[in-house]
């Protein structure tokens, strides 16, 4: 398994370079223009000048190599410099956003806290409630618990967050006044009251997202548990006199985890991607909002950098999932 992991990690480098190239070409091909959002009163000649100043006059491969150099050399050196106070990156151009004309990495760092708080927490909560729901629903198939679980999770998944979010705002922010409708990203948690406020402003977006995540994961958990509960080894284990708890939580659960691990591993990178719609509904302004505004503004360096980091996480977590398969089921071998 160790050699497999090392081999996959090495293979990830060319894979990621290839993915970054494809993303760049896709963004270049996509229709759009960084000056599209400017007022129409700005004349075409000025727009052309703006495009040139952004480096759009260069051929696509030059722009790609430039981005690669900035992202793989200048950015890491800059991080090194700020950590150790050295000056290797002096005079090196970092990846600069077209909208803000400032380093992309700084803005991403600025957006991380709210995204991790809201999207990350909701993923953790979603997973934590989904697993027991899935297990109980499968163990007591067609019980009232299972039926209600199915109903809630299907509604949670099929009713889009642009609706549930607004509904919550109308009920809890407008009518009841319990929670703020606008997330304050400048809020600093430095006291108990500040913490309470933070919990209040996170409550609604976390609820919406956790419901959505839990719906999905619990369905996979349930289906996979059902498959395994009917297997022969379960009967054997019971016949051997093992307690029901051991049978279900040790044997069946372990063997049922493969699809669930896959889904969770696919879900973790999306935390970094942020939740575009939920962030917009609750004005969280995290990474999802950053990505969508960058796409609309055709801010290619920003979109490219965000998507590439996303790609790195996807490759990494899919590798983690593959390694976990081997641990959950030692019969799985890759070499």
């Amino acid at each position: 398994m160790f050699t497999y992991t090392v081999r996959r990690l090495l293979l990830a480098i060319p894979t990621l370079l290839f993915i970054s190239l494809i993303i760049f070409l896709l963004l270049d091909l996509a229709p759009g223009d960084p000056t599209a959002q400017l007022p129409l009163t700005i004349p075409p000649e000025v727009r052309e000048k703006i495009r040139e100043s952004l480096g759009l006059g260069q051929p696509v491969y030059v722009r790609y190599l430039l981005w690669l150099k900035q992202f793989l050399v200048a950015e890491p050196l800059h991080v090194f410099d700020t950590m150790f106070g050295t000056g290797f990156a002096d005079g090196m151009q970092r990846v600069i956003s077209w909208q803000t004309r400032s380093p992309v990495a700084d803005i991403i760092a600025q957006r991380m806290p709210q995204t991790l708080w809201v999207v990350g927490l909701s993923y953790v909560i979603g997973t934590l409630i989904a697993l027991p729901i899935g297990i109980i629903s499968a163990y007591r198939q067609y019980s009232w618990f299972d039926q209600i679980g199915a109903l809630v999770s299907m509604i949670g998944y099929s009713v889009p967050t642009f609706f549930t979010g607004v509904l919550l705002i109308v009920v809890f922010a407008v009518n009841l006044g319990w929670f703020p409708s606008i997330y304050d990203t400048t809020h600093v948690v430095d006291s108990w009251d500040a913490f309470v406020f933070q919990v209040r402003q996170m409550a609604m977006p976390v609820f919406v997202l956790a419901l959505y995540n839990a719906a999905q994961i619990s369905r996979f958990m349930r289906a996979s548990m059902l498959d395994n509960l009917a297997q022969d080894y379960v009967r054997t284990a019971r016949a051997k006199g093992m307690s029901e708890k051991v049978v279900v939580l040790l044997h069946v659960l372990r063997n049922s985890m493969i699809p669930v691990v896959t889904v969770i591993a696919l879900g973790v990178p999306t935390i970094f991607g942020g939740a575009i719609i939920t962030e917009q509904v609750f004005k969280v302004n995290g990474l999802g909002q950053l990505l969508i505004t960058a796409i609309y503004a055709n801010d290619i360096p920003m979109v490219q950098t965000l998507t590439f980091i996303f790609a790195v996480l996807i490759v990494l977590f899919n590798l983690i999932a593959d390694v976990l398969y081997g641990m959950l089921d030692p019969r799985i071998r890759y070499d």
Binding site: G32, L291, I295
Partner: peptide, 19 residues
Amino acid sequence: LMRFTDLFLALPLLPLLLV
């Protein structure tokens, strides 16, 4: 096939659709 899947997972949806 799985690297191909990784690629598709990483592609940004909106620009892909616009293309």
